[in-house]
C-alpha cells in the first residue's frame, strides 16, 4: 500500500512540474468558461421570452466532452515516459509489485483530475450567486460524482495504453482512439442484434453517465465504472508483466 502511495505522490507532483498540468488545466477552464458565459449570455438575452434560469447541469455536460480529449493527455506520460527514459528498469527492479506500480500511476493521475474537477466547482458556485433563489446542489453533486467515476475509468484506459508504448504521442492517440470508440459504441446498437447489442448496450458509457447527470446515484452505474477501472488496470498490469517476458 505504501508503495502505491509513494508512486502516486511522485506522479501527482510531477504534473505540476511539467507543463502538462497547466496546459490541461488552462484548456479545461477556458473551454468550460466559454460554454458557461455563452449559456449565461444566451439565457439573459432570452429572459423576456422564457424566464427560466439555466440548469446547473450545463456545467457538467460540456465537461464530459472535454474529459474525453484531456484524459489521454494526462495519462500518456505515466508509463511510456518511464520506458523511454530507462527509469522503468529502476521501478521494476525495486521491491515494488507490478500492480502497485500501475495502481500508483493511476492514483496519481486520478488525484490530479480530481483536483482539476474541484477547480471547476467555481462555475456552479458562480451560477448559485446569479440565480435566485440559488441552485439545487443535488444534481451538481451527483454529476460531479459521475464525472469522477467516468474519469477514473478513462484514466485506467490511458494508463493501460501508456504501458504499451515508449512514446507519449503514440500513447496519446491510441488511448484517445479507445476512449472515442467506447464513447461512440452506442451509435452502433441499432445495427447489431443479440449478444452484440447486449454487449454494446452494457458498455455504453453515456447511458451509465446520464443517470448521474439527471441527479440520481444508482449503485449499478457506480459498480459499472469501478469495474471498468479495475478491468483496465488489470490489463495494464498484465502489459507491464508482458514487457518483462519479452
Amino acid at each position: 500500500m505504501r508503495n502505491i502511495w509513494t508512486i502516486a505522490r511522485r506522479e501527482y507532483k510531477l504534473f505540476f512540474i511539467s507543463p502538462i498540468a497547466y496546459v490541461v488545466a488552462f484548456l479545461f477552464m477556458l473551454v468550460l468558461g466559454l460554454f458557461f458565459s455563452l449559456t449565461m449570455y444566451g439565457s439573459i438575452s432570452q429572459m423576456a421570452y422564457s424566464p427560466t434560469a439555466p440548469s446547473p447541469q450545463m456545467v457538467i455536460s460540456p465537461m464530459v466532452t472535454i474529459l474525453l480529449f484531456t484524459i489521454p493527455a494526462v495519462t500518456m506520460r505515466t508509463i511510456a515516459e518511464e520506458q523511454r527514459s530507462g527509469t522503468m528498469e529502476l521501478l521494476l527492479t525495486a521491491p515494488v509489485r507490478d500492480w502497485e506500480l500501475v495502481l500508483g500511476k493511476w492514483l496519481g493521475s486520478f488525484l490530479f483530475m480530481a483536483s482539476l474537477l474541484l477547480l471547476t466547482g467555481v462555475f456552479p458556485l458562480v451560477l448559485n450567486f446569479m440565480v435566485k433563489p440559488g441552485i439545487d446542489f443535488g444534481p451538481v453533486i451527483a454529476g460531479y460524482l459521475g464525472l469522477l467515476l467516468l474519469s477514473s475509468s478513462m484514466l485506467a484506459i490511458g494508463v493501460m495504453v501508456s504501458a504499451l508504448f515508449a512514446n507519449q504521442i503514440a500513447a496519446f492517440f491510441i488511448s484517445l482512439g479507445v476512449v472515442l470508440a467506447l464513447w461512440l459504441s452506442n451509435q452502433f446498437t441499432s445495427y447489431v442484434q443479440g449478444f452484440w447489442k447486449t454487449l454494446l448496450d452494457f458498455l455504453d458509457i453515456i447511458t451509465h453517465f446520464v443517470s448521474f447527470y439527471r441527479g440520481t446515484i444508482a449503485l449499478k452505474d457506480v459498480v459499472f465504472f469501478i469495474s471498468l477501472t479495475a478491468l483496465f488496470l488489470f490489463f495494464g498490469t498484465a502489459l507491464v508483466e508482458w514487457r518483462r517476458w519479452r
Binding site: I17, T87, T93
Partner: peptide, 10 residues
C-alpha cells in the same frame, strides 16, 4: 546501477 542511469531529471 543499470547501464543507462535511471534518473528523473525534474
Amino acid at each position: 546501477l543499470p547501464e543507462t542511469v535511471p534518473l528523473y531529471p525534474e
